Simulated scan of single mutants.
Amino acid sequence: MHNNEYISEVEFIDIFADNLRDIMYEMDISEGELARRTGLSKMAISRYLNKKRMPTLKALVNLSYVLCVPITDLIPTYAMID
């Protein structure tokens, strides 16, 4: 594979956080409300939005379900992680 087909984990987390923030803004949903509806802590949502942590697969599925978006709207799928 060529190097341009890879993204770093940091880039992956940055893209996820930006996508999550954009979707939350479009849906007019707060961190607290998202936490309540997904069963995640507000601290976990804050860590995702501040690019400190990636969600588990379970949390990702729950975020996708609550936000009514496919998982691919939250995570980058166009490259491999280096």
Score class of each variant (00 low, 15 high):
residue 77 T to K: 01
residue 16 F to P: 02
residue 55 P to Y: 02
residue 28 D to V: 01
residue 21 R to I: 04
residue 25 Y to N: 14
residue 61 V to R: 09
residue 77 T to A: 06
residue 10 V to R: 13
residue 54 M to P: 00
residue 24 M to Y: 10
residue 17 A to P: 04
residue 35 A to T: 07
residue 79 A to N: 10
residue 33 E to H: 02
residue 59 A to C: 02
residue 16 F to Q: 09
residue 9 E to C: 12
residue 72 T to D: 13
residue 81 I to C: 11
residue 27 M to K: 15
residue 26 E to P: 01
residue 64 S to Q: 08
residue 34 L to A: 07
residue 50 N to R: 15
residue 49 L to N: 09
residue 48 Y to G: 06
residue 31 E to N: 15
residue 38 T to D: 04
residue 54 M to L: 15
residue 45 I to E: 08
residue 53 R to L: 12
residue 1 M to G: 14
residue 60 L to D: 03
residue 62 N to H: 05
residue 63 L to M: 15
residue 82 D to F: 11
residue 47 R to C: 13
residue 53 R to S: 12
residue 4 N to G: 02
residue 33 E to D: 08
residue 5 E to T: 05
residue 54 M to I: 12
residue 71 I to F: 02
residue 82 D to Y: 14
residue 28 D to H: 11
residue 20 L to F: 05
residue 13 I to C: 13
residue 35 A to C: 03
residue 70 P to K: 02
residue 18 D to A: 13
residue 12 F to K: 08
residue 54 M to A: 15
residue 70 P to G: 02
residue 25 Y to P: 00
residue 23 I to V: 10
residue 49 L to C: 04
residue 20 L to N: 01
residue 44 A to N: 06
residue 39 G to Q: 02
residue 72 T to H: 09
residue 20 L to W: 04
residue 22 D to Y: 11
residue 65 Y to V: 12
residue 17 A to K: 04
residue 11 E to F: 07
residue 35 A to G: 05
residue 13 I to R: 15
residue 56 T to L: 09
residue 75 I to W: 08
residue 20 L to S: 06
residue 6 Y to G: 01
residue 6 Y to Q: 13
residue 69 V to I: 11
residue 66 V to F: 00
residue 54 M to E: 10
residue 68 C to S: 15
residue 79 A to M: 07
residue 70 P to V: 03
residue 77 T to M: 06
residue 68 C to H: 14
residue 77 T to F: 09
residue 73 D to M: 11
residue 46 S to M: 09
residue 2 H to E: 07
residue 68 C to A: 15
residue 71 I to M: 06
residue 35 A to F: 07
residue 19 N to I: 07
residue 76 P to T: 12
residue 4 N to A: 11
residue 14 D to G: 05
residue 64 S to W: 01
residue 45 I to R: 08
residue 17 A to V: 11
residue 63 L to K: 08
residue 29 I to Y: 02
residue 74 L to V: 03
residue 62 N to T: 00
residue 37 R to S: 03
residue 33 E to F: 01
residue 67 L to T: 03
residue 32 G to D: 09
residue 51 K to G: 08
residue 27 M to H: 14
residue 15 I to W: 08
residue 31 E to Q: 15
residue 24 M to K: 10
residue 49 L to H: 07
residue 73 D to R: 14
residue 13 I to D: 11
residue 6 Y to A: 07
residue 46 S to K: 12
residue 14 D to R: 13
residue 64 S to I: 01
residue 10 V to P: 01
residue 76 P to L: 06
residue 78 Y to M: 01
residue 39 G to E: 09
residue 35 A to S: 10
residue 69 V to D: 06
residue 70 P to C: 01
residue 11 E to D: 14
residue 20 L to G: 05
residue 21 R to E: 12
residue 13 I to F: 02
residue 34 L to C: 04
residue 59 A to L: 07
residue 10 V to A: 15
residue 44 A to Q: 12
residue 4 N to H: 14
residue 19 N to H: 11
residue 82 D to G: 12
residue 52 K to W: 01
residue 2 H to A: 14
residue 20 L to A: 03
residue 3 N to P: 00
residue 80 M to L: 14
residue 39 G to R: 11
residue 29 I to L: 00
residue 16 F to W: 08
residue 65 Y to I: 13
residue 25 Y to R: 12
residue 57 L to H: 10
residue 63 L to H: 03
residue 82 D to V: 10
residue 79 A to G: 02
residue 78 Y to L: 04
